[in-house]
């Protein structure tokens, strides 16, 4: 990650725009409290934290630059959603779909774009509209399956 993914501007721009980055070497003695607090078991292990230290999103495993950028942006959008910042979540999910439409994170972004729109305006029809797009654009994704009850 330090040699391939993190040096790329497409990654650092997103990381710096939304977060204060913190690295923890899991081999160091002084890392033990953080390892225990966040139940860390395997690297790479990324967490998005609120300012009180509570975890809002996580993912494991190496990702190349474009996939990392898409996943991080999707994660920051989800953090916004969980903080009830619906309009900002919509903006960031939309950015995932505009910039990284073929990424592994894109189906999740489309699923939760509908959720953010619904939470902002429960009277609107945006949830079904976005989920209908999910059926067409990402038919084999897990996120399509997660909304498949409306296809019955």
């Amino acid at each position: 990650m330090d040699t391939v993914t993190y040096p790329e501007t497409i990654v650092s721009e997103i990381v710096d725009r939304f977060s204060i980055p913190l690295q923890c070497n899991n081999q160091e003695e002084e890392a033990r409290p953080l390892v225990a607090r966040y139940h860390h078991v395997w690297t790479p292990d990324l967490r998005i934290l609120d300012t009180d230290g509570s975890e809002l999103y996580r993912w494991n495993g190496y990702l190349p630059p474009e996939e990392f950028a898409a996943r991080a942006l999707c994660g920051f959008a989800h953090a916004r959603l969980r903080m009830l910042q619906y309009a900002q979540a919509e903006e960031e999910y939309s950015e995932v779909l505009r910039r990284f439409p073929t990424s592994y994170a894109a189906p999740e972004a489309l699923y939760f774009l509908g959720v953010a729109q619904y939470r902002r305006d429960p009277q609107g029809n945006d949830l079904r509209k976005e989920w209908h797009k999910l059926q067409g654009r990402y038919p084999s994704s897990e996120w399509r399956l997660k909304q498949s009850f409306i296809e019955q």
Binding site: S19, I20, L34, P44, I48, D50, A79
Partner: peptide, 30 residues
């Protein structure tokens, strides 16, 4: 270039001041 912080409390304080989140990356240098 990402400027990684090393201490959680420092990162949380800075995130609060800048209205950002903290991105925590556990890594193994080996």
């Amino acid at each position: 270039m990402i400027h990684w912080r090393k201490h959680l409390e420092e990162a949380l304080d800075e995130a609060g001041q800048q209205r950002k989140f903290v991105l925590l990356d556990f890594f193994n240098p080996g």
